[in-house]
Design a protein around this nucleic acid. Structure first.
Length: 527
RNA sequence: GGCCCUAUCGUCUAAUGGUUAGGACACCAGGUUUUCAACCUGAUAACCGGGGUUCGACUCCCCGUAGGGCCGCCA
């Protein structure tokens, strides 16, 4: 029988990314699980930037991480404006380890004094050679303990001489057993660890030590992280014991894998959250998708927004095994959320993409930033650079609405709708041919179209009328009532594409004049 | 090489000793459509292997096998 799970109350959890790269999908998912866990049990979610490695940490990466989390609406609890949790102010940054050096130093000095840590003067090269040798003879590579017996006086002397040194933890050679909330009982043999390095010097702590100290200082009660950290856990537990600190509960999440089943990384394609953002994935789709990577609510429902996830989340339903990142599922979920947007909201989301594709330019800037491609302004009227004509948001909204159900992600839009904004379309004349139609056939079809369209009064220029009139005409014209003989050339003449929205809808937006112009242009291609 | 973790359709997963092994994505077929998409209907598709335990194992145990993670003066 499983032990009765202890009641989870006001847990404090954290996400602790290092700013050495762009916000990774895996990091975002770990953040999400921590966030959901905190919200579900009325706890706190803390963001801690682990930037003790000065060489590799970069401010721009930290910014990317913060941006990405905010975009996903994974808000951290400490550091945000307490008066308005929805609002972010620059002053309310995350915790940074680089700003907490004094704290670590006091711990390190104490350990040095108590003898639970010691200076090591072995050279990197020697250590590396040792490691190679140990692995070659089938042993667990670990530090020999050479410097562990150096007297304090000798160490002082060496230090004075300026010999390079690191600080090691006198790692107890004992078994470490802990109950992982996802994986169950996990056992490690501490004797295999060796004396691990915990700091480069008293002012430069290394990961394991800094994490242990901060988890304690920040009163972290549950450590939920990727299972790539499993081997670090015994080290951290031993450190906690040596320092006399309480042990948080651990939960190790299965990893997200690439298509080749190895840990998801750059070589599998995009792993940066902000890259997905730029490509036009919606934050709610990303959240929904990531939540279902390694977790499920035990229902048949697939669509969950963040509030539902907060209610339903539990570690018991987390998977033990890793999950492969499946872009097709993401596309499907994203398409679902896109289809559920209001036309107005969708337009706001799409305008930046049309602007950056230079299909439109805002004329009157109002200054509101849009979600989507960063920094693009929304206007009230837009200029179509190619035709020099103006287009208003209503027309834009109609165009975009036509493609709403066709989008998997927003950046697909420009190439789908570009023909609305062009003076002349570029397509091979053959494209106008439906089935076995010859050039004279096509010409005949276009002239038939022209005849019908000319006769339509401007006031009757509406999608439904066009459809009624043209479908009827098409059924009369085509052999065996095949409407394609009229409608296919019509659609291609208007869109220049082999697939598009229905021609009646396109014609309605284009207007009578332009519709006739495009038919004329199509005829011109047949010469 | 050592240590650790994992194992149900191609993919994400449900099942907690008794089910025709369920759902979703993808794929395929059909419907609808001038096209594409969306939508509807349907089909194909899985318990890694071998031993136990048990009246009965996808479910529990052991051993294999396979995959993954970690073995930094990175985090």
């Amino acid at each position: 029988m499983e032990a009765v799970a202890k009641k989870i109350e006001n847990p404090r959890v954290r996400i602790a990314p290092s700013p050495t790269g762009l916000l990774h999908i895996g990091t975002a998912r770990t953040a999400l699980f921590n966030y959901l866990f905190a919200k579900k049990y009325n706890g706190s979610f803390i963001l801690r930037i682990e930037d003790t490695d000065e060489e590799r940490s970069q401010k721009e990466y930290e910014e990317d991480i913060l941006e990405g989390l905010k975009w996903l609406k994974i808000f951290w609890d400490e550091g945000i404006n307490p008066d308005d949790p929805k609002e972010y102010i620059g002053n309310f940054g995350p915790y940074r380890q680089s700003e907490r050096i004094d704290i670590y130093e006091s711990y390190i000095r104490k350990m040095l004094e108590e003898g639970t840590a010691y200076y090591c003067f072995c050279s990197k090269d020697d250590l590396e050679a040792q490691r190679q040798y140990q692995m070659s003879i089938g042993q667990a590579p670990k530090y020999s303990g050479k410097c562990s017996n150096l007297s304090k006086e000798t160490a002082e002397q060496y230090l004075k001489e300026g010999r390079p040194a690191v600080i090691r933890f006198r790692t107890p050679a004992q078994n470490v057993v802990f109950q992982d909330l996802i994986k169950g009982k996990i056992e490690f043999n501490g004797a295999l660890l060796g004396d691990i390095t915990i700091a480069k010097d008293p002012k430069i702590p290394l990961y394991n030590l800094a994490a242990v100290i901060d988890d304690y200082e920040m009163k972290i009660s549950y450590v939920i992280r990727g299972e790539d950290h499993l081997p670090n856990t015994p080290k951290q537990i031993l450190l906690q014991e040596a320092l006399g600190l309480p042990q948080p509960d651990y939960a190790h999440l299965p990893l997200i894998l690439g298509s080749d089943k190895s840990k998801l990384s750059k070589r599998h394609g995009s792993v940066s959250v902000n890259e997905y953002r730029e490509k036009g994935y919606l934050p709610e789709a990303m959240i929904n998708f990531m939540a279902f990577l390694g977790w499920n609510p035990d229902t048949d429902r697939e669509i969950y927004v963040i509030n539902h996830l907060m209610e339903e989340f539990s570690l018991e339903h987390c998977q033990k095994s890793s999950a492969i990142f499946n872009i097709q599922k993401l596309d499907w979920i994203n398409g679902f959320y896109i289809r559920n947007k209001s036309p107005k909201k969708l337009m706001e989301l799409c305008v930046p993409y049309l602007i950056s594709a230079n299909l439109i330019q805002p004329i009157f800037e109002t200054g509101g930033h849009l979600a989507g491609i960063g920094g693009v302004e929304i206007g009230e009227i837009y200029l179509m650079p190619e035709t020099k004509e103006k287009i208003d948001p209503i027309a834009l909204e109609n165009i975009i609405a036509l493609y709403q159900e066709r989008l998997k992600y927003l950046s697909e839009l420009p190439e789908l709708v570009d023909f609305f904004f062009k003076k002349e379309l570029d397509y091979p004349p053959d494209l106008l041919s439906w089935k076995e139609m010859t050039k004279p056939d096509i010409k005949g079809a276009i002239e038939a179209l022209e005849g019908v369209i000319e006769a339509i009064k401007p006031n009757d220029w509406a999608r439904s009328n066009l459809e009624e009139i043209l479908v009827k005409k098409a059924a009369e014209t085509g052999p065996e009532g095949d409407k394609g003989y009229l409608l296919w050339p019509f659609r291609v003449a208007l869109s220049g594409k082999k697939s598009s929205a229905p021609p009646f809808a396109i014609a309605e937006i284009l207007g009578k004049e332009k519709t006739l112009l495009r038919l004329k242009q199509a005829k011109g291609k047949l010469q």
